[in-house]
Design a protein around this nucleic acid. Sequence first.
RNA 1: GGUGGAGUCGCGUAGUGGCCGAGCGCGCACGCCUCGAAAGCGUGUGACGGUGCAAGCCGUCCGUGGGUUCAAAUCCCACCUCCACCGCCA
Length: 420
Amino acid sequence: MIDLRALRTDPDAFRESQRSRGEDPAAVDALLAADSSRRAAVTEGDSLRAEQKTISAQVRTASAEERPAMLARAKELSAEVKAAEAAQTEAEAALRAAHLLFPNLVEVGAPPGGEQDFVTLREVGRTPAFEFDPLDHVELGERLRAIDTARGAKVSGARFYFLTGVGALLELGLLNMAIAQAVSYGFIPVITPVLVTPKTMEGTGFLGAHASEVYRLEADDLFLVGTSEVPLAAYHADEVVDLSEGPLRYAGWSSCFRREAGSYGKDTRGIVRVHQFNKVEMFVYAEPSAAHDEHLRLLAWEEEMLAKVELPYRVIDVAAGDLGTSAARKYDCEAWVPTQQTYREVTSTSNCTTYQARRLNVRYRDADGKPQPVATLNGTLATTRWIVALLENHQQPDGSVHVPAALRPFVGGREVLTPA
RNA sequence: GGUGGAGUCGCGUAGUGGCCGAGCGCGCACGCCUCGAAAGCGUGUGACGGUGCAAGCCGUCCGUGGGUUCAAAUCCCACCUCCACCGCCA
């Protein structure tokens, strides 16, 4: 949720933000209208409640003659208060509904426009020039007995897979390396629940635009998370966190589950787009004034990981219209995938400013000791998808795969992955 | 899954319809005392919303949501969470 005070003070900033997202600036006025009707309803209710309170207190000590008339008036007021409260509840619900739908204020500098309007900030590393026909990750994975999509499909259906042998080692190695790096920078490693309540899913905003992406367990009314951002964001819900020692940094490790509804026919080959994968996610609670710098730090840590596994990549500044509802700014790192001759997203880092924290009611004490919403940020450190880029970019003519030096300690010292 | 108990201001507790505008203890903050500290003494102690330049004023909040009543921490209903025991179980 956005800051309604800020909206009242400077509605034009929000109109501009809406335009850059390609959304209707009129939503600003609808929200302002809902806000002012709520305030009117509250004022009305407050004064009726005050009057009722006074009369009720007098009834007790009233004389026998006064009593009946007072009771009649009190009864009347009671009904009025009830009606006023119903009106207030309704106005509050209307405001909340509009408020929840309204996206975060886009950070100044983010490129306007939609999915295609991203700005490439830099390209890093050299894309490999093979003197042989490179194999794609599916074929490499089969030869190495590392990825088994056929049996994945047999056992669980389309978009499932087994990682076996060096595939499993590689997965664990990447994730462990990510955790090790995060810990070295002061992150607290966390293994999160992957099943969460509707309230948690709702609070983190993943039942809005992403609702159809989410697995739901009907019998228990629980949801499978699509990212550990969900449990990590909800971790401090309804709390006042202590940021006096600096930002709270968590590195979550979890399996992630996505229905991939509406992506039929897209990336059906291999493990680029799957229903279940693992991810190490950085999640930070910071003071709002520190959020911008922290965002750039998260991006730098992602790039450090990519450099360690020696992948060529580019960094893009995602356009406003392609930001999630809660993000104010988003940078993606995309690794080069040789057989697709294109870059594919392997990390994503968003600055959600105070938007997510307002929903979840996560606050810190400012210099005056007053609780204020924190800023939240998140960024990917490694996922199963990295295996795709790693296998393809580091493949040798004989079908073996070079292991980058930094990764070797995490895969039992292997310098190459060879067909088993 | 079953049975029983419990959820009150940071923590511990008191509170069975109006004197609760929530008491007490601890903690914390400030002050006095002290060379300094402890102890002691005194004062203060939350959140959210509305209104106001401000001091302030008003309203809401006793797990959550409904209900009864002129009036609810207190009575009724539902739900949630925690604890104990029983059953089942990796």
